[in-house]
Structure formats: C-alpha cells, structure tokens
C-alpha cells in the first residue's frame, strides 16, 4: 500500500467517522470532490456485491455487475434528486443491472449448449452430503427462487429494507411486495423442508 492509498484510506475512515451521510457525500461529489464518490462506494459496495451474489447465486459476475452499478451511479449522480434514500436509488440500479445480466445470460444460453450459472448452482435436496454447509445450502435455495420472489425477499431479509423502499427500488406495489415476500418464504420453506430440523 503506498502513501497515497494510506492517506486515502484514512480520509475515508475519517469521513465515515464523521458520519457524513449519503446526501452530503453526493453533494460534495457534485461540487467536484471526487473522493466523496469513493466514500459512497466504500459505504455501499458490500451491500451491492452481496445483493448481486444472492440474486445470482454465483460469484463469477459479481465484480463486473457491481462495477457497472457504480459506473452508472458515477455518471448519474448529478441527476440524483434527493427525493429518496440513496440506497433505494442504488438498489434500483443494482436490481436493473442484475436483470440486464440475467437477460444477457438467457440470450447467451440460446447460443451455447450449457449455461454455466444455471448448471453450477442447481440445488437438489437429495444431493447434499451429510456434512453440508447450512449457510451455503440456504444461499443456494434463495438463489433458486424465482426472480420476482427472490428480489423482495433479499431486499427485505438481507438488506433490511422496508416494504415501501422495496416498492421504490423494484417498481412494484407494496401490496405486491408483501405478497411476494410471503410466497418467497413459503417456497423457501418447502425447499428446505428435508432439513427442517436443522434449520427451522
């Protein structure tokens, strides 16, 4: 780590310590302070990466998609209107990028015999070994959920977003969010039924 990186790191830590909120960082960036963007990224990058990971159930595309997400943020930040939480806006972009990726994967699968993402992450209950990793199994089970159910469930249980925020981020009604989360849980419960005792 060179001196510049150390200094940058210290500056980031100080910003976080100073509890600069997202809006302040965005304003600072829009006023020309490039490091404010790095602070924003540092603050939210892991949430974005995990959100992508849980939605795709694969680590292969996390880096590419998360970079696309923050590149979009970088380019659109001047258009941010401060009318919603930055995280809501950020997750909206993330969800859209994930959807774009899945769409591209579907198109790619037309031209290839195998779809790596699909084949690598298929979860078959009977295929687990006795010394299975529970966490990994749950993650795989979540990944197996239909996209429409998976997105609100992850945003709720993993990111801790309210139904309204999920509605804003995904563009669906709160009533629908509520219904989909319920259906996602019911589906997940069925998928994890063989290990009910261990998990539930």
């Amino acid at each position: 780590m060179n001196e510049k990186e150390i200094n940058d790191g210290m500056q980031q830590a100080q910003n976080i310590f100073n509890l600069k909120d997202d809006f302040s960082l965005i304003k600072a960036f829009n006023e020309g302070e490039e490091t404010a963007f790095n602070d924003l990224v540092n603050r939210h990058k892991e949430k974005v990466r995990n959100l992508i990971y849980l939605n795709l159930g694969s680590t292969s595309s996390i880096d590419d998609i998360s970079q696309e997400v923050f590149l979009a943020v970088y380019r659109k930040l001047k258009q941010f209107r401060f009318q919603s939480q930055f995280t809501t806006w950020l997750y909206t972009i993330t969800i859209n990028k994930i959807r774009d990726h899945i769409r591209k994967q579907k198109i790619m699968s037309v031209f290839s015999a195998f779809s790596s993402d699909d084949t690598e992450n298929v979860v078959e209950p009977g295929s687990f070994k006795e010394n299975f990793d529970v966490n990994e199994m749950v993650r795989d089970a979540v990944a197996k959920l239909p996209r429409k159910l998976k997105e609100p469930l992850i945003l709720r249980d993993f990111e801790g977003m309210s139904y309204q925020e999920i509605s804003d981020a995904t563009g669906i009604e709160t009533g629908t969010v509520k219904s989909r989360i319920f259906r996602a849980r019911e589906s997940l419960k069925k998928m994890l039924q063989p290990w009910r005792e261990e998990l539930l």
């Binding site: 892991e46 970088y74 749950v138 993650r139 539930l200």
Partner: peptide, 30 residues
C-alpha cells in the same frame, strides 16, 4: 415463529468477504 426463523436464516447467510480493492479497480474501470 416459522417466518421469524426463516428471516433469521436468510439474515444469517454469511456475507461475501470484503473486497478491499474494489474502489481502486472501480476507479480504473471508470
């Protein structure tokens, strides 16, 4: 109780290890 357990199960999914160089790579990418 079932839903609460499911919630906790999902919440307890371990997060990805932090990527410390993500910002550097992102800046290069940008």
């Amino acid at each position: 109780n079932e839903y609460n357990k499911l919630k906790k199960t999902v919440e307890s999914i371990p997060k990805l290890p932090e990527d410390h160089y993500f910002v550097s790579r992102l800046n290069e990418y940008i």
